[in-house]
Measured scan of single mutants.
Amino acid sequence: EWCEALHSFTAETSDDLSFKRGDRIQILERLDSDWCRGRLQDREGIFPAVFVRPCP
């Protein structure tokens, strides 16, 4: 499952995944309604679900 970043997100901890608006992120797991775990290029981490939308 893939999503597109609606806003940029800067990691606040070593577990977070930083990304820029427009990045396509592979969703690996939905942790709960607020957080997802994903992969961007060679990095993995968690990020807020409200920062992304599903890719068509």
Rank of each mutant, 00 (worst) to 15 (best):
E1G: 07
E1Y: 07
E1V: 15
W2N: 05
W2E: 13
W2S: 02
W2K: 03
W2A: 10
W2M: 08
C3S: 04
C3M: 07
C3D: 03
C3V: 13
C3E: 00
C3T: 05
E4Q: 07
E4P: 06
E4H: 08
E4A: 06
E4D: 06
E4K: 08
A5E: 03
A5P: 01
A5F: 04
A5W: 02
L6G: 07
L6D: 15
L6F: 15
H7R: 14
H7C: 13
H7P: 01
H7W: 13
S8T: 14
S8G: 09
S8W: 01
S8E: 12
S8M: 04
S8R: 04
S8A: 12
S8L: 02
F9M: 06
F9L: 08
F9Y: 15
F9Q: 06
F9G: 02
T10Q: 14
T10L: 05
T10M: 12
T10V: 10
A11Y: 00
A11Q: 06
A11G: 14
A11S: 11
A11D: 01
E12P: 09
E12D: 09
E12N: 14
T13A: 12
T13F: 08
T13M: 10
T13H: 14
T13V: 07
T13R: 14
S14Y: 08
S14V: 12
S14L: 10
S14G: 11
S14Q: 14
S14E: 13
S14H: 12
D15Q: 14
D15N: 11
D15K: 14
D15G: 11
D15W: 07
D15V: 13
D16W: 12
D16C: 13
D16G: 15
D16L: 14
D16S: 15
D16F: 15
D16T: 15
D16Q: 15
D16H: 15
L17G: 01
L17D: 02
L17M: 08
L17E: 00
S18V: 04
S18E: 10
S18R: 02
S18I: 07
S18N: 05
F19N: 01
F19C: 02
F19M: 04
K20D: 07
K20T: 11
K20W: 02
K20P: 01
K20G: 08
K20C: 09
K20Y: 04
K20R: 12
K20I: 08
G22H: 05
G22K: 04
G22P: 02
G22M: 07
G22Y: 02
G22C: 02
D23E: 08
D23Y: 02
D23S: 03
D23V: 02
D23P: 02
D23M: 03
D23L: 00
R24Y: 11
R24P: 05
R24L: 11
R24T: 09
R24A: 08
R24W: 07
I25Q: 00
I25S: 00
I25E: 01
I25V: 05
I25L: 06
I25N: 03
Q26F: 08
Q26M: 14
Q26E: 14
Q26W: 08
I27M: 07
I27K: 04
I27P: 01
I27F: 03
I27W: 03
I27E: 02
L28R: 01
L28M: 10
L28T: 12
L28N: 05
L28Q: 04
L28C: 07
E29M: 05
E29D: 10
E29H: 05
E29F: 05
E29Y: 06
E29R: 07
E29Q: 11
R30G: 05
R30Y: 14
R30D: 00
R30S: 07
R30A: 06
R30F: 10
R30I: 06
R30H: 12
R30V: 11
L31A: 03
L31G: 06
L31P: 08
L31H: 08
L31W: 07
D32H: 05
D32M: 04
D32A: 07
D32R: 06
S33F: 10
S33I: 06
S33D: 13
S33V: 10
S33T: 10
S33H: 14
S33C: 10
S33Q: 11
D34V: 11
D34T: 15
D34G: 14
D34H: 12
D34A: 12
D34M: 10
W35N: 05
W35F: 15
W35S: 10
W35M: 12
W35L: 13
C36Y: 15
C36L: 14
C36M: 15
C36W: 15
C36V: 14
C36T: 07
C36E: 00
C36F: 13
C36H: 08
C36S: 07
R37F: 07
R37Y: 14
R37G: 03
R37N: 02
R37C: 06
R37V: 10
R37M: 08
R37S: 03
R37H: 04
G38S: 00
G38C: 03
G38R: 02
G38L: 05
G38E: 02
G38K: 01
G38Y: 02
G38V: 00
R39E: 03
R39S: 08
R39P: 00
R39A: 08
R39I: 09
R39N: 02
R39F: 04
L40H: 11
L40F: 14
L40I: 15
L40V: 11
L40W: 03
L40R: 07
L40E: 00
L40C: 12
Q41V: 08
Q41P: 02
Q41L: 12
Q41T: 05
Q41W: 07
Q41E: 14
Q41C: 11
Q41A: 11
D42C: 07
D42M: 03
D42Y: 04
D42S: 11
D42V: 04
D42Q: 12
R43F: 04
R43Q: 12
R43K: 11
R43I: 05
R43H: 06
E44I: 13
E44S: 06
E44F: 01
E44T: 06
E44W: 02
G45W: 00
G45D: 03
G45L: 04
G45I: 06
G45V: 00
G45T: 00
I46F: 14
I46K: 15
I46T: 13
I46H: 10
I46W: 13
F47G: 01
F47Q: 00
F47Y: 00
F47P: 02
F47M: 07
F47R: 00
F47C: 04
P48M: 05
P48S: 06
P48Q: 07
P48W: 00
P48I: 00
P48N: 09
P48R: 11
P48K: 10
P48F: 08
A49Y: 07
A49Q: 09
A49K: 05
V50P: 05
V50E: 15
V50N: 09
V50M: 14
V50T: 14
V50R: 15
F51W: 08
F51N: 15
F51L: 14
F51M: 13
F51V: 09
F51D: 03
F51C: 12
V52W: 02
V52M: 07
V52G: 03
V52R: 01
V52I: 08
V52Q: 02
V52D: 04
R53F: 08
R53M: 09
R53I: 06
R53G: 10
R53D: 11
R53L: 06
P54S: 10
P54A: 10
C55A: 14
C55L: 14
C55T: 10
C55S: 11
C55P: 08
C55N: 09
C55I: 10
C55Q: 06
P56Q: 15
P56G: 13
P56T: 09
P56V: 04
P56R: 15
P56S: 09
